[in-house]
Simulated assay, not measured.
Amino acid sequence: MQAYERKQLLERVEREGATVGADIPETIEVQGEEIDLRTFVFEIKRRDTVPPGERERVERAKKNLRRERLQRVQRIEEGDITREEGEELARSVIGIDRALNALESLGPTDLEREQKAQQAADRKRWMSFLQKALGKDDGGSSRRGR
């Protein structure tokens, strides 16, 4: 592969909109293990939130996908590969990015925690407002003086 071809492939995989219209690969080999990536992503995305038992599995999958993506980009950068092999690697990197985007958009733990914290803060503000409106201070006694 020529240097300019390598550069084009690297620019393509790093382009911000590279995943638009890209498909998640049906299967992918990660760390020597064949994974049904598309099925896994759609199974996880189908739920509103990721159950606690699945969170570790999803985080592990994201970590492995990031590692695999890095290795494939490095093969494009440094490997003695043909143009066709480079094209295939670039397609797979973009597919991995697509899967990672789908898994990252779940954000189950932070959103749930944030929502609960927001609800607690709203309740506290509402109780404070009611106490002031009813003429009670923090101790629950009536206000002194007018």
Rank of each mutant, 00 (worst) to 15 (best):
P51A: 06
R125L: 10
G135T: 01
P52T: 09
Q2L: 07
L106H: 02
K63R: 14
G32Q: 07
A22M: 10
Q2G: 03
D23F: 11
E85M: 05
Q119E: 15
L89W: 10
L103A: 08
T49N: 11
A102F: 02
E59I: 06
R144L: 11
S141Q: 02
Q131K: 15
V13F: 14
D48N: 12
L89D: 05
T82W: 10
G17A: 15
R6K: 10
R60W: 00
L89M: 09
R12W: 12
R6P: 05
G17L: 14
A121L: 11
L103N: 08
E104Q: 08
D138C: 02
W126I: 05
D48Q: 14
L9S: 00
Y4W: 09
A3I: 02
L100V: 03
T27K: 15
I76E: 02
I24T: 11
V20T: 14
L70G: 08
E11M: 12
A90S: 15
T19L: 04
G95T: 02
S92I: 12
V13K: 08
E78C: 05
L37Q: 04
K132T: 08
S141D: 04
S105R: 09
F42Y: 14
D48V: 02
V58S: 03
L89H: 12
E87Y: 12
P108D: 08
K136M: 04
G32A: 11
G107Q: 12
I24S: 08
V58M: 08
G53V: 03
W126R: 03
N101V: 05
D97T: 07
T82S: 10
E112S: 09
R83L: 15
G79D: 01
G107W: 08
A61T: 01
M127Y: 09
D138A: 09
E114C: 06
E16N: 10
R57H: 06
D137K: 03
E85D: 03
E14L: 14
